[in-house]
Amino acid sequence: MIRVVLTRFAWTLVILLGVSFVAFMLMRALPGDFAIAAAGSQSVSPEVLDAIRRDLGLDRPLLEQYFLWLGHALTGDLGRSFVTKQPVLSELPARFVVTFQLTLIAAIIAMTMGIATGLASARMRGRTDWFVRIYNGLILAVPNFVVATLIVLLAGLYFPQLSIFNYTPFLSDPIANLGSLLLPAFSLALAVSVTISENTRAAVLEISSQDFVMVARAKGLLPRTVLRNYLVRNALTPIITVTGLQVASLLGGSILVETIFAIPGMGQYLFDSINSRDYPVIQAIVVLAASVVILVNMLVDIAYARVDARVKA
């Protein structure tokens, strides 16, 4: 078990390095001049631009720039925002915590709804199955920003007391904070829950027809024992897989949802930074988001080994 964890962790570090490299180079490959963006205006004299270039190290070779950036990043310096002139790290952690909260709540909602509807669909079949599958198809067909906008609209019209655009920080009022995140988390979770539901359904159906389930029933075990130890425990591997993969789409979705619900998280920060071409911030967020996805995948790999003894290293 410890070997599994260590191997995965070593790989994670290698992948993270690659991701940061790609993110850095992509930023440099974008059209537009860094120096102009940093200056904040088109009408700056060439001398000033040159000074900015020297200051930011833009006059050096790309590879050198990357290692400089990496060195700074590893020592906790992600550069300064072009817009606020403040260090990126003075704003990013607070933003990250908000998004972390939002995606965590969304993941919990998505897993609960997805596994419950998937299980019900596979076990009861008939009308329940029908209903769940039509619902899943419908939700899957509608993009989540439409769902989020509709929720904002309906909540605003019929439940004005919900005060949707009123984000309350966790530290000032935890309960109000949870309340202000519930609707956004729900609209973020919907599409993901459908994917989990479909996969749960398929996994449970496939496992239902396995011989060992027949053996379990021939033992005279209670239906709940068969369900828990034989069906769900075996269906868990594919469920964990999709859930892990969906974390990336939760993070992506948070950009839209945070913008629509006016939540001061990382997604909204990224959206604003892209609008104002605030490259240092964009780069920091891309690397951070990629790290989260990779870390979650590492956790998924470790979870496999815990659920299924056949998975080793």
């Binding site: 060992f212 027949m214 029933r217 021939a218 005279g220 425990r233 299924d308």
Partner: peptide, 25 residues
């Protein structure tokens, strides 16, 4: 019937490779 299965009438199946739950000891 459930009380009877496995206790008074038991069954051995054809394919031992697929008849055991892979995730349980």
């Amino acid at each position: 019937m459930r009380d009877l299965r496995g206790r008074r009438i038991a069954m051995v199946f054809q394919d031992p490779m697929t008849s055991l739950n892979p995730v349980m000891t």
